[in-house]
Every structure is written in C-alpha cells, then in structure tokens.
Amino acid sequence: MEERLLTIKDLYVEYITDDARVFAVNGIDLAINKGETLGLVGETGAGKTTTALSIMRLLPEKVGLIKSGSIVLNGKDVTKASEADMRLLRGETVSMIFQDPMTSLNPVLTVGDQIAEVLELHKRHKNKADVEARVDEILKMVGLPPERKHDFPHQFSGGMKQRIVIAIALACEPLLLLADEPTTALDVTIQAQVLALMNELKQNLNTAMILITHDLGVVAQTCDRVAIMYAGEVIETGTVEQIFSGDEHHPYTVGLFESIPDLKKKTRRLHPIDGLMPDPTDLPTGCKFHTRCPHCMEICKTELPKPIEKDGHLIRCHLLEGGGRKAEGSETL
C-alpha cells in the first residue's frame, strides 16, 4: 500500500536582497510516498536546494521567503508549523545532507564526538560503550577507518567530510532524507558504497529520499521517480523508466542527456545546450526555456505551457499540447 509522506503544492519561493528579487521557485508540485526515492535534477540555479531548504524551513532568515503554496510533511503543513513543531520534525522526521559539508560540521569538535552527539540525542543507545561501538560501525559503513574519529574536520579531504555528514544524517534514521549532492565529492566506489547504505536504510526503515544530483547515472541506478527543474519550475517528471526511455521529452531534458560525455564514444567536442540559465531576477515570459530552445514557437514566447500528463509522466511544453501527446516536431526530440 502506497502511503503519501510529502506533498508540495504550487510552491513559490523568493529571495529578497538589497537590490533584487530572485524568483527561485515558481509554482512547483511534488509528491513522495513512504520508502520512495525521488531524483531532483536540473540546471545550476534551478531552485533545487531552495526547494529542499523550504521543506526543512531553513531558508536564510528575512531573505528567503515562501510566498505561497503548501508543503505537507507527514500530515503537517510545514509552511504553517510553529518553530517548536519544526524542531521536532527536523529531529525525528526529516534530515538533510547539505551541499557544503561544512554547513553541518562543527570545526572544533572531533568527528567521533559529533556522531556520538546525534546518537545520544536520539537515545537509542544505553551507555557510552554502546554509543562508541555504534560510532565505529557508522564510520566503517562510510569507508573511514574508525581510529580517525579522533580527528577534526579540517584534517579530512572534501569527500571524507561529506561521508561524515552522510554518516550523521543516517544515524538519525529519518522518515525523509533530503540529500543535496551527497556523492558529488566521492569517487565511484565509495559512492556505490554510500548509495548502497542509503538503499539499506530505505529497505529497513522505509525511508523516503529526495536525491538532488547532477549525475544522471546515479539517478538511473538509484531513483524510483525523477523530477527535472528549470528556472524554478518542474518541467518534466515521471518514473525513472519514463524519463530514461520513451521518445517524448521536454527539450531541456533532451539537451541534458546530449551533454553527457559518452564513455563508449570518442568525440572531440561535447554538445551542451546553447546559452545560459535566464537571469532569475528577470525571468522570460512564456516558457522559461524559450530563449534556448531549438523548437521555440511564437506561442512559447508569451504563454506558459500547462503540464500535460500521461500515466503519471508529466511534461510542460507547447509541443505536446493539443492532439493528444504526439505533437508536431516531437519526432525530432
């Protein structure tokens, strides 16, 4: 039986700085069931981290604002919850692995003490020796020799710090894990180990996960569903099968896949999508991708495309509007 854990509806988030208003998230809908892994991918600056921070309600104070929409997590609307409720939610229900590991590490505590602190907070271990044994076990799980628990964060490499942060997040055993680029700093063997560990958590505790990553390989190997963001909108979402196969996709999705260097082919030049992300303080009208889209039509410049769905596979593009899902030009996608 599928049980809904998180529902985001029509969420808008802005950053108000001294001289600009940044439209970071512009009306997204997302849903996650218990035990499910959602891959969140998209352009740098598309609003992935902002979405995760909104769920945690950890947007930078005064600057980052949830303008409208709702985020219902385990029956509670995060946008309306009190700060005390949020603290409880953050401890028990949801935890986040931050993009920058130093956000969550204390530079003056040894890493062993930091993991022990979390374990003690969750009161699952009876005595000091139990906690210590668990700390060793957790370090080994993320591929670090337990004796290094006496070291301070600055004595570790970038990837090692990231593994410690992952270890701490896993020690919390949350219902929902928000992992923001958790394995970007890791080599592929350690990455495989860490992903296996997260998978184990998913099996044993039915943990759901939002995995933010630029690595489409990781998405293909670990996610159940995928949402692709562009300029603060979800422009395509579906099961991993729907995203990685089938012939109907958003032009941005197509561009992403064409940008990946192919291990099996030898090419001198890669084929990135032309142009850069639009300025988030001054977004284009209509389809936000129209300034870079090779299929741009007149209507795209003025009208925001509506999401069109088939079997849970949702695409926001004028090419698919009218005449079922097969619209003119889609063969070339």
């Binding site: 080994k140 591929g143 670090l144 020799p145 004796e147 290094r148 080599d187 592929v188 063997t189 990455q191 495989a192 180990q193 296996a196 690595d215 489409l216 390989g217 990781v218 998405v219 293909a220 190997q221 670990t222 991993v240 099968e241 990685f244 196969s245 896949f257 990946i260 291990l263």
Partner: peptide, 26 residues
C-alpha cells in the same frame, strides 16, 4: 573503479558491480 561507474541508462540498472569490501587501510 571502472565497474562502479553509474551509467545513465536503464539497462545498467541491475548490472553487477565488482563491489570492493573489506576495511580501508589507514
């Protein structure tokens, strides 16, 4: 290392990897 590369395709989803086990030397 090479066998652990996650490939961006569905075919590779259930590929068997040479997972390395054992403790990391200090």
């Amino acid at each position: 290392l090479l066998s652990a590369i996650p490939e961006p395709s569905l075919e590779a989803r259930n590929k068997k990897q040479e997972v390395i086990r054992g403790e990391v030397t200090s």
